[in-house]
């Protein structure tokens, strides 16, 4: 695998040119361009605020800030994986003619979406500032925990790249993969604590038989642990409404053992996915 990484490094200029090309293509034919990438999360937050805070009468303070902190990385994973699923197949005419490391194709899709995630972070911080301003700054919206953000971003990138390697390679041979993946991403949006909290799962399960086992199983989904970490990193730890009329309860501290499991799963996805991709990449041009 070392030689594959070296070869990829040798072609880094082509990778960046391909990222640039993807960004250009995406915005060439739309008037609002990058604004669309921001409109999507902001519109989602507005609807979720309406549903949870107003209709379902959830009392959690700063609810929309927490949701946005989790929605941005989840949206990145979703869009990057779906884009990359098609990446090799779309470029097959070039792949059949010229040599270059094939992993550039899914990586370019992941990186161009990652750039969108980075660009949306300043908007997130402005949003956070405004939310806390409306509460008259009872606490500062910015904490030292935000310094953990770069680590989270690296883990998110590696997890997504790993999934992109696997899915883009399999999709060359079985186009069903793309549909299966979009279904899974849709289902996991609900099984990942984006619009609710990891604490909700904890309080719902803690007194049930096998409750803790199920709770840990739920967090074996690396996306679940990641978006929870984003919430705890980007927004000050406050109180949440666990439902069931118990009133507000302080948020749980970060579950470091489960976070360690997430890091391990991420590394397995990244290196395992890359190995699988490298095993399959020579057969892309020969697909029966």
């Amino acid at each position: 695998m070392r030689s594959e990484f070296q070869e990829l490094w040798r072609f880094r200029e082509l990778l960046f040119a391909m990222v640039e090309r993807e960004l250009k293509i995406r915005y060439k034919n739309s008037v609002l361009g990058f604004v669309w990438s921001l409109l999507m999360p902001l519109a989602t937050i507005l609807v979720m605020w309406l549903v949870f805070k107003v209709f379902l009468r959830n009392d959690t303070p700063n609810f929309s800030a927490y949701v946005l902190a989790a929605y941005l990385p989840y949206q990145f994973i979703q869009l990057a994986v779906l884009d990359s699923a098609q990446s090799v197949l779309i470029s097959l005419p070039v792949v059949k003619k010229v040599y270059f490391p094939r992993e550039i194709l899914p990586l370019a899709s992941v990186i161009s979406n990652f750039i969108h995630l980075l660009l949306s972070l300043p908007i997130f911080f402005i949003f956070l500032f405004v939310i806390y301003a409306t509460y008259g700054f009872e606490v500062s919206p910015f904490t030292w925990r935000m310094l953990f953000l770069p680590v989270l971003l690296v883990i998110t990138f590696m997890l997504t790249a790993g999934m992109a390697f696997i899915i883009s390679a399999l999709n060359v041979f079985y186009e069903d993969v793309k549909y299966a993946v979009s279904l899974l991403l849709y289902i996991f949006f609900f099984l990942t604590p984006v619009m609710y909290f990891s604490e909700n799962v904890f309080y719902a399960l803690k007194d049930k038989p096998y409750g803790m086992l199920l709770y840990n199983l739920y967090h074996a989904n690396p996306m679940a642990m990641l978006v929870t970490a984003y919430k705890k990193t980007l927004v000050p730890m406050g109180k949440i409404d666990p439902g069931g009329g118990e009133g507000l309860i302080p948020m749980l501290p970060m579950n470091w053992p489960m976070f360690g499991v997430t890091v391990a799963i991420t590394l397995a996805f990244f290196f395992g996915g890359y190995a699988l991709f490298n095993r399959m990449k020579w057969r892309f041009v020969e697909r029966p």
């Binding site: 200029e13 082509l14 040119a17 391909m18 090309r21 250009k24 293509i25 060439k28 034919n29 470029s91 005419p93 070039v94 059949k96 003619k97 010229v98 270059f100």
Partner: peptide, 29 residues
């Protein structure tokens, strides 16, 4: 390799953008 009929050209990009990108695919920095 000589690419036949611009395999690897993207229809929405300009001739210049495509030329730059394809030259890089063929191994130029």
């Amino acid at each position: 390799p000589l690419l036949e009929l611009g395999a690897g050209f993207h229809p929405d990009l300009t001739g210049q953008e495509n030329a730059l990108f394809n030259a890089m695919i063929l191994g130029l920095s």
